[in-house]
């Protein structure tokens, strides 16, 4: 039986992988963090993953992953023929099979064309189970580059009107693009008490406006910032709720049905937790 499973797994790898673009329209809502964490979680669950940073001129994904000191070549070098595609890929040694194709920092978005990016994504899809594309903010050429090779899309938004309106614009553009991609939604930086007080859009309101499938919620957590500061994606921390959110999203991407995190649930602050803390057990 084990042998059969092994065989099936190997066969699955010869299949063409899934290319997923992570986009939002608005800047600063957590595209890069989401890409890094979903990629990490996919790798943790045993998938082969390649992350592609298309934010040429403002590359960040390598920093969030802690790989910034190891990127030598980048996507523009591949396009211009300075190096082979596999030479530009940076392996993340913490995982079995996770690679990063960094963006160039000293060029701009017009250094590559959508067709060239599509070519790269298409060849990566043959080798990896998942190709995650980190999209730059905006709706200009950088966005066009990022979606060119994607089969699926994840929209990241925060519970703010500006972010939701920009997400709406992006959804409209994806739906009416050549490939008619119907994206799925990740709501980032959820603050339950602000939603309850009506100081933020609540989840139902966001879903009513955007009317696409919800992939998951990520609670606002300082640990996310600290994690990207250290270059260790938060989802590698088994106790963190934001990290759990990313792992749940990833399981949903893999086709599992996972109930939504209860955002109202407060972190435990009972007597025993305090006691444990005092005794140094947690």
């Amino acid at each position: 039986m084990e042998q059969v499973k092994e065989q099936v797994h190997k066969d699955a790898k010869t299949h063409v992988g899934r290319a997923i673009v992570v986009t939002s329209g608005k800047g600063g809502v957590g595209k890069t963090t989401t890409t890094a964490n979903i990629g990490t979680a996919l790798a943790l669950m045993g998938n082969s993953v390649c992350l592609v940073d298309t934010d040429i001129g403002l590359r960040n994904l390598d920093i969030v992953l802690g790989l910034d000191n190891r990127s030598i070549y980048n996507i523009v070098d591949v396009v211009t023929g300075q190096c082979k595609l596999h030479q530009a890929l940076v392996r993340d040694k913490r995982f079995e099979e996770m690679y990063l194709l960094p963006a160039a920092q000293s060029k701009d978005k017009s250094s590559v064309t959508p067709e060239q990016v599509k070519g790269i994504i298409d060849s990566l899809k043959l080798e990896y189970d998942f190709v995650l594309i980190d999209c730059p903010a905006g709706i200009e050429q950088g966005f066009m580059n990022a979606i060119a090779g994607a089969d699926e899309a994840i929209i990241v938004t925060t519970p703010e009107k500006a972010a939701v309106q920009d997400a709406d614009r992006i959804i409209g553009m994806l739906e009416r693009s050549e490939r008619q991609i119907v994206p799925k939604l990740v709501v980032n930086r959820v603050r339950s008490h602000m939603m309850a007080a009506g100081d933020m859009l609540d989840i139902d309101e966001i879903m009513r406006i955007l009317s696409i499938d919800l992939l998951g919620l990520i609670v606002d957590d300082e640990e996310v910032i600290a994690a990207s500061h250290r270059g260790v994606p938060v989802t590698m921390n088994p106790d963190n709720r934001a990290g759990l959110g990313y792992r749940n999203i990833t399981r949903r991407i893999l086709g599992e049905s996972v109930p939504l995190l209860d955002i109202m649930e407060q972190p435990q602050k009972g007597f025993f937790v305090k006691l444990k803390k005092m005794l140094g057990m947690k």
């Binding site: 309106q165 920009d166 709406d168 614009r169 959804i171 409209g172 553009m173 739906e175 009317s211």
Partner: peptide, 8 residues
């Protein structure tokens, strides 16, 4: 037909 989204 469909939703008129932001930017339409």
């Amino acid at each position: 037909g469909g939703t008129a989204r932001s930017g339409h």
